[in-house]
Amino acid sequence: MEKSPSIITTKNLNLWYGEKQALADITMEVERNRVTALIGPSGCGKSTLIRVFNRMNDLIDTCRVEGSVLIDDQDIYHPAADVVSIRKKVGMVFQKPNPFPKSVYENVAYGPRIHGIRERGELDRIVEVSLRDAALWNEVKDRLHDPAGGLSGGQQQRLCIARCLAVEPEIILMDEPCSALDPIATAKIENLIDILKRSYTVVIVTHNMQQAARVSDFTGFMYLGKLIEFGETTRIFEKPKEELTANYVTGRFG
């Protein structure tokens, strides 16, 4: 146990889109093998923050980041940092399921393939294990070579999780993974998150406070680009220190 308990550390993180500041002075720590939830009203910057952790914000030309973001004590915004290996280590599941227009098998095998695995047997093994871990194997094992677009929304989202697991990341970022899903599919994903935290660190953005309360160990409440309060989920929901947080979690605004 030489690793420190926190896997992601941000210090005085500021982020601008052009002239508009989207994140202000965020300092937080994400603990290893725990589920951390980010909640807050629309436009508060929670999706922006989660996209900082795997540098998906790089895709936006006008985006500018200041401050430090350490993952395993390495600054991921250091000029010499390798964005490809960061993203390999920090997987992401998006708001809307986005399987590639390929077969179920090819979707999961995509990650291992681009990282250099070519033997068919090894790929078969990874695909099966990943799909099992994503609780999807039994539903798709007979149609591995059908187009992924033919799966239901919930299955597509679990396929995206399997695709992410196949790369063997350490951290999984989930950006409102259930917002496009029905309650049953949502329940399946929530169960899955509970299992995933044994082996992975999960950071989840959610609109749904009940979901945050159900799945997470730690919760951060964000408002207008600031991290208002961060702590253990039970404490945030039962004894919030800030009035803003209290108002939000009791549903008085937001």
Binding site: G91, K96, V167
Partner: peptide
Amino acid sequence: EFREGSLALGAT
């Protein structure tokens, strides 16, 4: 989304 999905897996 396809591009983001692939880049997020660490593809070049």
